Amino acid sequence: MRRLEELFVPHRQAKVALYEDSVRVCQLKGDKTSTAVLNIFRSNMNVMGEAIMGFLRFPDPHPDRLLQRFRTVASTLRSMMDTEEKVVFPLFLRHARGEVGPS
């Protein structure tokens, strides 16, 4: 669990920075729609990140519950990453290419 935490923390910090920078860019461009979408995903990511950190820092001492919680965390992470890949990352790319403007 400690090793997973060591790997997760820098990944989470990088994502926080990516979201912060992206929200700032969208706000500067006056893109209210993208800003709103990014803020929703950023809030969700923060809540999920805190939940995962709690899971990693305070593992359930009962092996069966720990396994079930691990499966739940893994499934939730996969789902969140799939959604980000479909919605958020293309938005980042469109902004990086200058394809998104004020809305």
Rank of each mutant, 00 (worst) to 15 (best):
L91M: 13
I52H: 01
D31Y: 01
V25T: 09
L66N: 05
A96T: 11
M81C: 08
F55T: 06
R42P: 04
T35P: 05
M80C: 10
C26F: 09
D60K: 08
F8G: 08
D82S: 11
L4E: 14
D82W: 04
G54L: 00
M1L: 11
V23D: 05
M81K: 13
N39C: 10
V25L: 12
F70W: 15
N46V: 07
E84I: 04
L18T: 10
L66R: 13
S22F: 01
R42L: 08
L28K: 15
F58R: 13
M1P: 07
F92L: 08
H95A: 02
R69E: 14
S34M: 07
P10G: 04
P63F: 01
Y19K: 00
E50H: 06
A74R: 14
R78Y: 08
G98W: 02
H62V: 13
M45G: 11
T33H: 11
Q27Y: 04
V37F: 02
T76A: 12
V88A: 02
L77Y: 05
S75H: 09
V23F: 04
G49Y: 00
M81P: 02
L38G: 04
R78D: 13
M45I: 02
S75E: 12
T72W: 00
V16H: 03
D21G: 10
R2P: 00
L7Y: 08
P59K: 00
E85M: 10
P61V: 10
L56E: 06
E50Y: 06
M48Y: 09
T72R: 09
S103V: 06
F58C: 08
T35Y: 03
Q68H: 14
R57G: 03
S103E: 12
A74H: 12
R97Y: 08
R94D: 14
F8I: 07
R65Q: 14
Q68T: 12
D82L: 10
V87W: 02
S103K: 11
E99V: 00
L18V: 05
L91C: 06
T72D: 09
K86Q: 14
N39D: 05
R12T: 01
F55D: 03
S75F: 10
L91Q: 00
L28Q: 15
G49I: 03
E50M: 05
R42Q: 09
G101P: 00
F58L: 08
V88E: 01
G101T: 13
S43Y: 09
R94C: 07
L91V: 03
K15G: 05
V73C: 00
F89A: 03
I52M: 05
V23N: 01
T76N: 12
F89Q: 05
A96K: 14
L38P: 04
Q13S: 07
A96I: 07
M48C: 09
V47Y: 10
T33W: 04
F41V: 07
T72K: 10
R12Q: 11
F58K: 14
P10N: 08
L28R: 13
P63Q: 04
I52Q: 03
F55W: 02
L56K: 05
V47I: 15
Q27S: 11
R12D: 10
S43A: 10
S103T: 12
P90D: 06
A14R: 15
N46S: 07
P10M: 06
R71W: 00
M1A: 11
K29I: 00
A51M: 12
P10E: 06
T83W: 07
F70L: 15
T72Y: 08
Q13N: 12
E50W: 01
N39F: 00
S34C: 08
R65K: 14
G101A: 14
M80W: 10
M80L: 12
I52E: 03
